[in-house]
Design a protein around this nucleic acid. Structure first.
Lengths: 337, 337
DNA sequence: ATGAAAGCGCTAACAG
DNA sequence: CTGTTAGCGCTTTCAT
């Protein structure tokens, strides 16, 4: 009942090899033959079976995408970047959420490899040794998007989180703050939380400021955590006057926490964020934020993957995209020199 | 080099059929044999080739998911619901963005069917006749999630958009408003925009209010459009005192538009939204909004699809989930009776 | 330029 | 409970 390559071969009086050739755009077919075959294909509404093709050719033109949570702003943007480029190169993506669980990541990787994906792009906030080992022993290329494996043994696309965070904190320092809080999600579950924390500490140190563990809040990365962080941190002795937020939701939570208590931003406290999603403009004051180019990271990661799958030579497999800080109103305009 | 079922059969001194049986959990295998096979599988690190299995069994345990745009809040939530249930039933999903283009939808459907998906769930704000025709002539089941095909010939999961919108507008009317604006994305590109508009018009009519086309703004569905709608609508003669927003972003744009001009919400104008995403709580005042249970819609749609793929009997293929309105602060507390 | 034939790795009767 | 045997629908040499 389903029409196969054999059916069109018979109808067109050619061999299946020839049909295969025209379907795959092989040039070694006489135009007249091609035309005839094409007509039969049209008439019979023949649609090649990609599974059979995959078995025979050992290529599926599908790649696996493992991300923590598609319902999260960050990953949704990233995924869009991945998918757009995948489409451009005629790949489809199998998407799966890991919820940042090592077990799930491992298991997803396994089922995707079982499905013979031609490659995978993965986002993981914590590339454990186990994961790393698994990634290094696959038969198909893998690229990490927005995720770092310390030894740089796995292809990846990122920005310089450390440097970006350092600059962000510095801007707060430049505005005269001495008590700067760091609010982020749980470090191991947050996009490169460790880098941000290290940069934060170093920036303070370089400015001769001491790190106060009371100013570090790392629970979860939702809006409510920003709200919560505000209420915790604003009531301590010698409270912070500025906040470095790990992402936009937290930053907005912080701002609302302040405003709900009659504290003005940026007049009384200042907040800088690290994400610059569409949310950044959807608050008053709008967020000054490090821009994390998620879409681009996804797109570049996928592009890199196509090269790897294609066995092309790539000069640098650990790509660092440029970053910048979008200046808006949640911190005061930097003093002019 | 890649180890196949044949390799483990040889190593375990059994036939490939037996290996296949233990891999697939068939009970007709003597425990001792099973154990032996399992050991070899472990030792050889055998991983079944899902493509070969798919070709032989004509089942791929993957379903296609066609949505307008994964980077959009609404669809990301929906997709998470789909994916969770898919995982629960051991399906993987191939995800693709249509950007609400009929051509892309058609083409995606085609490539997914080519990849032999066992079913597809699709979200499309405008199920055109062409799409409808295509959906009705596939060999595998399809279910629409958060999308309606007028004749109800295609399985679907939704809420009663019309009724929900009617209630929302009515709440505005009950608060004494005579000039109520409707702000939504372009109707054909917005989730069930038509239903909202019709309900809006009917609610007004039922309250003896006339529809004023100047109060209807339907351009796009982003934050900026809310801002834009505010500046347009607030300057007309006899401006609206209340707004029915098609989604949360628009609602927030409207509120910010008002606040940026010194107009208080809900004291001076009231806004009701239709989505209730996490954004709804991330504004001041927080949004009163119809709750659109995207996650549930996705989950129920996928569950329905599993039944259909499984050829189970389902009593109702056009599922309507209950809806409600989450009362927050963007409109005044309804007068008590 | 075209065809014949051998798989790709697995499932699914059918025997036994 | 286990093995044999056909395919599933297509790509890919290798001939011609």
């Amino acid at each position: 009942m389903t029409v196969t390559i054999y059916d069109v071969a018979r109808e067109a009086n050619v061999s299946m090899a020839t049909v295969s050739r025209v379907v795959n755009g092989n040039q070694n077919v006489k135009p007249a033959t091609r035309k005839k075959v094409l007509e039969v294909i049209e008439r019979l509404e023949y649609r090649p079976n990609a599974v059979a093709r995959g078995l025979a050719s050992k290529k599926t033109t599908t790649v696996g995408v493992i991300i923590p949570d598609i319902a999260n702003n960050l990953t949704a943007e990233l995924t869009r970047g991945i998918e757009d480029i995948a489409t451009m190169y005629h790949y489809n993506i199998i998407l799966a959420n890991s919820d940042q669980s090592e077990d799930k990541e491992l298991q997803l990787l396994d089922t995707m490899l079982g499905k013979q994906v031609d490659g995978v792009v993965m986002m993981s906030n914590e590339v454990t040794d186990k994961i790393k080992f698994a990634l290094e022993h696959t038969s198909v290329p893998i690229v990490l998007a927005g995720s770092i494996e310390k030894n740089h043994n796995i292809p990846s696309v990122n920005i310089d989180y450390y440097e970006a965070a350092y600059e962000a904190v510095n801007q707060l320092i430049a505005n005269g703050h001495k008590r700067i809080a760091f609010v982020s999600g749980c470090l191991t579950y947050t996009v490169n939380g460790h880098y941000k924390l290290r940069a934060y500490e170093q920036a303070l140190a370089d400015a001769g400021l001491s790190t106060d563990s009371n100013l570090i809040y790392a629970e979860d990365d939702q809006y409510d955590d920003g709200l919560e962080a505000w209420s915790k941190l604003s009531t301590i002795e010698n409270p912070p006057t500025a906040f470095f937020a790990g992402n936009d939701e937290i930053a907005i939570g912080l701002i609302h926490g302040a405003q709900d208590n009659g504290v003005n931003v940026p007049e009384q406290i200042e907040v800088i964020s690290f994400e610059n999603s569409k949310l950044a403009r959807m608050v008053r004051p709008q967020l000054t934020s490090v821009v994390l180019p998620l879409y681009d990271i996804g797109a570049v990661a996928m592009r890199l993957l196509t090269k790897l799958m294609n066995k092309e030579q790539v000069e640098e497999t650990n790509v660092i995209l440029p970053h910048r800080i979008e200046q808006r109103q949640s911190i005061k305009t930097p003093a002019q020199p």
